[in-house]
Amino acid sequence: MLRIHFTTEDMAHTRLAAEPDVLWEVLLSLHALQKRPGTKEFGLWRDRARGRLLGGTADLSRMLCELAPPVGYSADFLTPTAGLSCLDEALDILLATPRTRLRADLGDLAPRRSPATWLGALASGDTTVLSTLGEAVRRYHRTALAPYWRPIRAQVEADRALRLHALATGGVARLLTHLHPQARWQPPVLELPYPVDQDLFLNGRGLVLLPSFFCFGIPITLKNPDTPPVLVYPVVRSPGWAAGDTARPGPGPRSLTALLGRTRATVMQLLVHAGTTGELACRADISAASASQHATVLRQAGLISTRRQGNTVRHSLTPLGAELLNSSRGPH
């Protein structure tokens, strides 16, 4: 049983992540890759991903599986973010993990696995091993997740709309109790089924609710109580989501593509969901410089607006841009 202890302040600070988190999807898809449960949901994806991971990527994939076994504890430091979909930004945070955290997490992992020789070097913060880990995540993501990122994002966004409706009509309590059929809200404690007995005291930090495509069965959280509190829960997956994978975002509607060009039309289509320049570059699979250039042209045309948030800028469609995008799609 997992018991999450809320205060009044925690209720006010509980929020729903805006996007799927790329590192959580890497971790949980590794679990799905290694075990058979969820054959109906993940069977086709698993077969294709395993075939693609054979060869030069296999050794790096085995490295990740050492850190993320299919059952039991997976190293907490692999998922330092909650709601960050840009792989480059997420990897920067992962590879900056302090040595003390690496040692602690790998110490929790070691009793469950026969330690590989490179784990000791990783625990000491060896930069070469950390670089190899980063490359392993990048290649795995490119091979197993990037071709499916559009349906992953779409179904997480659909789930988020349902959760926001629950929040609007019944408050945080209703949002929490709808995360799982066996969830029980006994103020101020949320109880959820869990493979181990664990208490999570929020202590005013609030809770990030993170919808996840590859989370299966029950919500999960981190083991370390000192990490920012996050509860990852499964979304409903549409049948056949893995049948038509493509590695890059598709072009925008034909008329819009003819007007703006393929890449700029794709950028505009992606800005249905506002994002930073870095996020836009990741979504469109282009460089940050190219994303910035396209955003500038679209902004000068009055199709998007840009506002600064701290050290980043965030782009979104203007009413004119939304009208143009909708009209280009035709009556359907």
Rank of each mutant, 00 (worst) to 15 (best):
V235Q: 01
A247K: 13
T221W: 03
P211H: 13
R248W: 09
T257M: 14
P228Y: 08
F213N: 00
L256E: 11
R205V: 01
A242R: 11
I220C: 04
L200G: 00
G244H: 15
L231G: 10
E191M: 15
G217Q: 12
T263S: 08
G261W: 01
D197L: 09
V196N: 14
R264V: 07
T263I: 10
I220Y: 08
R248A: 10
P228I: 05
P234F: 15
L200K: 01
L259T: 03
V208S: 14
S212W: 12
T246K: 14
A258P: 03
L202V: 12
D197S: 09
P193F: 13
V236C: 05
S255K: 08
R262P: 01
P193G: 02
A247C: 12
L222A: 04
L231D: 05
L192M: 07
D245R: 06
P234A: 03
A243G: 15
V208H: 08
C215W: 03
D226Y: 09
S212Q: 11
E191A: 05
L260K: 01
V208M: 11
L192N: 05
F216E: 02
S238F: 06
R254A: 05
R237E: 14
F216W: 07
T257Y: 11
G261A: 10
P239Q: 15
P234W: 10
C215I: 07
D245V: 05
L222E: 12
A242K: 06
N203K: 12
K223R: 07
G206R: 05
L222D: 02
P219M: 01
D226M: 12
P251Q: 10
P234T: 06
L256T: 02
V232W: 12
A258V: 06
I220F: 06
P239S: 04
V208L: 13
W241M: 14
L260Q: 00
L256N: 04
A243Y: 04
L231T: 06
L210F: 02
Y194M: 09
G217N: 15
F214I: 05
P249A: 11
G252C: 03
L200E: 00
L202F: 10
P228H: 03
D245L: 14
V235K: 00
G204N: 11
F201R: 09
W241Q: 12
R248G: 07
P249H: 12
G261P: 00
T257D: 06
P225T: 09
